[in-house]
Design a protein around this nucleic acid. Structure first.
Lengths: 335, 335
DNA sequence: TTGAAAGCGCTAACAC
DNA sequence: GTGTTAGCGCTTTCAA
């Protein structure tokens, strides 16, 4: 039988209301009584029951986090940012893997709402009308992290992926390349797939370089699809001299694919990645890449959520964080 | 004002007990009444309050998970295993990063207990008496995953790291090497540091190869410490011909360090890693390594926890999973 | 500054 | 099969 607030009250010779005040740091308690209560708590080894508190106060100091896959370096880094800020604000995190399956995502949101979380950070690839509907009817704030939502109604934290794709391609163009291939993510993924691709295309267009269908390889963010892309792309009659991969993992895959067929990176083919996961520095040559501030995306999303939960005023609910290109060795230095 | 069970009861013209039965799948309800209730639930959009349920039933179907760092590939993979099994058994996970700081670990356990989790999976590097004390007085089961505890009283899931260290070293010995260096983890980490090192030492001893202090480089599991180790080790008067690193990340660091100084792996120096994180296949040459079934360690730990939570009989509460060596290209093939 | 008492929304006897 | 009725352990008015 665990110790309850009532036991403490009796032990300290006060009412449970007073104990509650002490536990919650309410200043309206005489120092002597506070001391008595604290002593009783100590003596009994009392530990407040957060569930009971949650029921009475309608706050759980717990937030839900939904993401496609925690074992993915990108999301794991986001999760770290989320957890650090949550912990800073005394929230705990209920972490859920969705496997990017719509029905699981919807189910998880529902479960989290049943558990009375105070808010939700949602990460996914594709936002469908079903999501929007749930977001709109949610009783607690939901913020998206690293996830695109086109109605512009849902709070979110991102970088500008169109610009990211544009910049990566521009970087290759500036290096003198005209035959630039791209390994995209699945186009069903608006951010990682389509948007970066659009940036690529625009950069080409601005440079008056005709777009070539055969220079597009549709990958799925994995190392293997990068390897595969190298094979396909290099067997083209006019092979590209530079490749932009929509994720670092794919970029490392191409690099190795290229090396396996005797090509030198960056001399024969330049490669640029996207994300800047730790892997980018653990490959030879080290990977030039578009830096996404992953940790910050998570951290800012969580911070934003705390504001909503506290009903603070939020000036900008769609936040776009800066990105940049980290020059390393998979591209030739610009002269 | 959210819909409560009471609203549903009124809407359906039954008592709240009946609604509760329907919601909880209790068979003692006439099909017609069940239908009526279900209809009312649907009409009202009723969503059960898990907090209230938790208070009344003293079960939260939530378990706590404490780990040093979710952004670390090793722990992220464990987390995936934990979450998958938890989800299979309808539990949710409260995920907490401890940064391996003792006071934070202790604090987190306490917070989780306040939140009335039904059980805890704990991952850490070093288990101190303070941990043991908390474990022993916990009101809910706690199982350790990938974490060593020497009293043998605490349920845990692991592989045999002494044997892992032994096997890795033996593999290098079998390849004809006599000058074998080891990059260890911090010795304050019993499993990743000391135990693997002991296995290394024993393998040497069994092969009658004298142990050399200068062949031990004390790393901290990071890529950089692997790079550093390469420098130090290769500048030795009698440089090693093979290196066993206590983590894949360090192994990849040595490989690159070696390559940077013009050495060929495995021709000049053979390298073997530990863990088999995904990185091991994303390096050239691909890394030969001791395979830890990370996902399984998490999954089995969670499964074990469900048994304790259900008060099922558990025959073996210290489980040791098998490991093996995955032969890749950073070692010369055995003839 | 403190106490009494009414819930918070649900489960679980127990009775009918 | 179904309803009644205590709690579960806490917060939060409202009085005193």
């Amino acid at each position: 039988m665990p110790i309850t607030i009532y036991d403490v009250a009796r032990e300290a010779g006060v009412s449970m209301a007073t104990v509650s005040r002490v536990v919650n740091g309410n200043p309206n308690v005489k120092p002597t009584t506070r001391k008595k209560v604290l002593a009783a708590i100590e003596r009994l080894g009392y530990r407040p029951n957060a569930v009971a508190r949650g029921l009475a106060s309608k706050k759980t100091t717990t937030v839900g986090v939904i993401m496609p896959d925690i074992s993915n370096a990108f999301f794991a880094e986001l999760a770290r940012g989320i957890d650090d800020i949550a912990s800073m604000y005394k929230y705990n995190i209920i972490l859920c893997d969705s496997d990017q399956r719509l029905e699981k995502e919807l189910h998880l949101i529902n479960t989290l709402l049943e558990k009375q979380v105070d808010g939700i950070v949602f990460m996914g690839r594709e936002i469908k009308p079903e999501h929007i509907e749930v977001f709109n009817t949610s009783s607690v704030p939901i913020v998206l992290a690293g996830t695109l939502e086109t109605t512009g109604e849902q709070p979110s934290v991102n970088i500008n992926h169109f610009q990211g794709g544009y910049d990566a391609t521009k970087r290759l163009l500036d290096g003198g390349n005209t035959r630039i291939a791209m390994i995209t993510g699945p186009f069903s993924d608006p951010l990682g797939g389509l948007t970066r691709f659009k940036g690529y295309r625009k950069a080409l267009e601005d440079a008056k370089i005709p777009f070539r269908e055969e220079y597009i390889f549709n990958g799925n963010f994995t190392y293997d699809s990068g390897m595969e892309a190298a094979k396909v792309l290099m067997s083209l009659p006019e092979a590209p001299t530079a490749i932009f991969a929509a994720s670092d993992e794919m970029a490392v895959g191409v690099i190795h694919g290229l090396q396996d067929m005797g090509k030198n990176v960056p001399r024969d083919v330049e490669v640029i990645g996207y994300d800047n996961v730790r892997l980018a520095e653990m490959v030879r040559p080290k990977l030039t890449t578009v830096v996404q501030p992953m940790y910050d995306i998570g951290a800012v999303a969580m911070r934003l959520l705390t504001k909503f939960m506290n009903k603070e005023k939020v000036e900008e609910q769609i936040v776009v964080l800066p990105h940049r290109i980290e020059e390393r060795q998979s591209t030739k230095p610009l002269s």
